[in-house]
Design a protein around this nucleic acid. Structure first.
Lengths: 306, 306
DNA sequence: CATAATTAGTTGACAAAAGCAACTAATTTT
DNA sequence: AAAATTAGTTGCTTTTGTCAACTAATTATG
């Protein structure tokens, strides 16, 4: 039985060989890996001191000093004495330095593209998402708000994926049977069948190109709209994503001049209920039902907009 | 929009830093990374010539010669003149060399364990399986047949995920619009609405707990059955998964005494068409249609079972 | 089958990469 | 105001790696 650790070591050896870091000339250029890392670091921070570089790349200052001297001679960087500290210099990439780095970046991209060209789109997707997963697991993995993107154009696969999320999340969290998913499928079918870009909309929150949350507005008769499929992957709750989705949905209703928005939910959806109330929705109906393998209250909430 | 390539580069930078390969003394030992790589290579192949090492590690033979000379002096390796080729030597690790390598391995494992100690069991699983996936995708190593599992019990999320796969794969491969997904949703709704465990079944092929292929049999009037939703993730084609699914589905029809199975497909589905024909299906109808943003022939295939 | 070409490994000369310590000049601490 | 610290430079050294010439054994070839 191979342990996780030995498998990781095996991957490390594999990936080291694959990264091809161990030849001195980085990408057949005249620069060594260290030199390119220095250039890259300067480029990343736009402006930096030698001291900072030695800290980040853990290089000897004497060694770095000489490399920078050469960079200066070769016109790759510019250096101006710092105002705040007259011992130090502010280092920037010159136009030529930027050009060089761009060329190297292009070469590196080309090399990667050559390596993955034989993969089809799902394989590429698998590769990238595996890498992302490793990165997430190995860092403290805090989802940042700015890493979430929002959209409301429907792409192939979106609706299916949202149905999947409903089935999966409600199945695991509320123990709903697969009948619930069937119900979701039915409602989505009607949504798509009667979809009008002017009166209907579905919003998706994405992280890493995967949908992690959604909400929708579906028009009804007589200037009324229904808010539907408000769902958030449990791992992404408490980040303000739900609030953003709900706000966008209600704003849309106002903009489209609906006079009333209502939603149907269950008494089990604590987190969502709180948010509905916070947004101004009022309970207008509650009825005990037995459905999808559970007993609960089916509740209706309304928000008057006029 | 970030491309796959830029995400891979980002991962490479992340993983390079994480591997910590760039300090000269490997794991604070008195040996450099190159020296350890040489020792490791000797250990891996049990017995090896210097020539072979230069090929594997792409080292200069003069450089290697000197390192080996030092290894010999330090009693890390033993060397005996080769019987077959009197120019060459067979190199082996000495007991002391093995001991050193074991110490280094232990250190390396300790370091990895420290890094993953905060992960729980399933997270470690995910980490290792992600690494394995990357390794598989980046080498010619195809997915092994035994890594695929099959089932036909429907769990929450399954149907949604299958709808997603249809939308996503047909969207990318055949450029079908989202209307196609709507159509799939409709057909699945009817399937679930009329589902009878005795006369209907859906099979799923899974890799890494993700559905990668499916097929279903849906009963019709008068002892007839329809074969539906035959789909395989492109990354998993050519492994016999499709054949297995198709065979299982047809076997089920025989078992349940259906007299005829038919299926509807498009002229665009080359791979699937081949398989249908191979399984004995005959083309019984073909009609040009314009749907889902494309023009193609809608085709019906039948397989008589009686 | 004799000779030419190639190959495994060694060695000398050298260049490039990296580290260490002493130094200058500016800045911060006491 | 003196002492300690810090940013960067320079001289000297070691480590790492390259290149080419060499020996001796092996393989290819006319």
């Amino acid at each position: 039985m191979k342990t996780a650790t030995s498998k990781i070591r095996s991957f490390n050896r594999f990936y080291t060989a694959h990264l091809d870091l161990l030849n001195q000339h980085y990408l057949e250029s005249n620069y060594s890996l260290t030199e390119v890392r220095i250039l890259y670091e300067i480029s990343e921070s736009k402006i930096i001191t030698a001291q900072k570089i030695t800290e980040i790349l853990k290089l000897d200052k004497g060694y770095l000093s000489r490399i920078l001297k050469r960079f200066l001679k070769e016109n790759l960087i510019t250096r101006i004495s710092s105002e705040e500290d007259k011992r130090a210099f502010n280092i920037k990439l010159s136009d030529y330095g930027n050009e060089l780095l761009n060329t190297l970046n292009a070469k590196s991209e080309k090399k990667i593209e050559d390596k993955i060209e034989k993969l089809n789109f799902t394989e590429k997707e698998m590769l990238v998402s595996s890498m992302q997963k490793i990165k997430n697991l190995m860092t403290e993995n805090k989802i940042e708000r700015h890493e979430i993107s929002y959209r409301h154009t429907i792409n192939p696969g979106d609706i299916g994926y949202i149905i999947y999320l409903h089935g999966y999340i409600y199945g695991n969290e509320s123990n709903f049977s697969t009948d619930f998913e069937k119900y979701v499928i039915k409602t989505f079918y009607h949504f798509l069948e009667n979809y009008s870009p002017e009166k209907d909309r579905i919003w998706m929150a994405e992280y890493n190109n995967k949908i992690v949350g959604c909400i929708a507005i579906q028009h009804q008769l007589q200037n009324e709209a229904q808010l539907r499929w408000f769902l958030l992957d449990p791992a992404f709750r408490g980040l303000g994503i739900g609030k953003k989705l709900l706000t966008d949905a209600v704003d849309f209703c106002r903009e489209k001049k609906f006079e009333n928005v209502f939603l149907l939910t269950t008494s089990l959806q604590n987190k969502a209920l709180e948010m509905y109330k916070l947004a101004g929705f009022k309970l207008t109906k509650s009825e005990e039902v037995q459905e999808w393998g559970k007993v609960f209250n089916e509740e209706r909430y309304d928000l008057k907009l006029k």
